[in-house]
Amino acid sequence: MELEWHDEKILAVMASATMDGLELSAEHLLQVSSGEVPHEEGDLERSGEVSRDDQQMAVAVSYDRPYAVRQHEDMTLRHDQGRKAKYLEDPMNSEQDTMLAIQAKAAGKPLQ
């Protein structure tokens, strides 16, 4: 019996699956945080996006409005019911187990 080991190909497949999992968990975070983001006209909520950088093996969830940081950090601002400051940080903490499960499932797919 002869066994050929293609380590570079295996590592590439695993890295791709890992990135897919990170992106899926970031999409989950975006969905949850979109329900908490301050909402007056909806511009801030609509600006939410997930970006992916395969070279750095990183994903990011961001809201792209000049006032996004202030709305997130200023705990003295008033918001509509269900909307609040820390709209990204709080779901990042509360959804951690779900995001880890999403990542683990995606990362394990090539091993099935």
Score class of each variant (00 low, 15 high):
40 E>N: 13
8 E>M: 14
95 E>G: 06
80 D>W: 04
16 S>Y: 07
76 T>M: 07
102 I>Q: 02
41 E>G: 10
38 P>W: 01
56 Q>V: 09
65 R>M: 14
109 K>H: 05
21 G>I: 02
73 E>R: 09
80 D>G: 09
108 G>Q: 09
28 H>G: 02
2 E>D: 14
100 L>D: 14
83 R>L: 04
105 K>T: 09
56 Q>N: 15
35 G>F: 02
24 L>V: 03
82 G>W: 01
58 A>V: 12
65 R>Y: 03
13 V>F: 05
97 D>N: 10
44 L>N: 02
23 E>S: 11
20 D>Y: 05
89 E>L: 09
29 L>H: 01
30 L>W: 02
76 T>F: 09
109 K>A: 15
45 E>A: 15
92 M>E: 10
103 Q>W: 10
41 E>M: 12
108 G>E: 08
70 R>E: 04
34 S>E: 07
22 L>I: 00
30 L>A: 07
15 A>W: 01
24 L>N: 09
96 Q>G: 04
17 A>V: 08
34 S>A: 06
21 G>N: 07
90 D>F: 12
88 L>V: 01
98 T>E: 15
61 V>I: 12
4 E>G: 07
111 L>F: 14
53 D>H: 03
59 V>I: 13
81 Q>D: 13
12 A>M: 12
61 V>G: 05
39 H>V: 08
77 L>Y: 11
6 H>V: 10
10 I>W: 14
9 K>G: 10
35 G>H: 06
98 T>L: 06
37 V>D: 00
22 L>W: 00
68 A>M: 06
86 K>V: 00
29 L>S: 01
102 I>P: 02
86 K>E: 02
9 K>T: 14
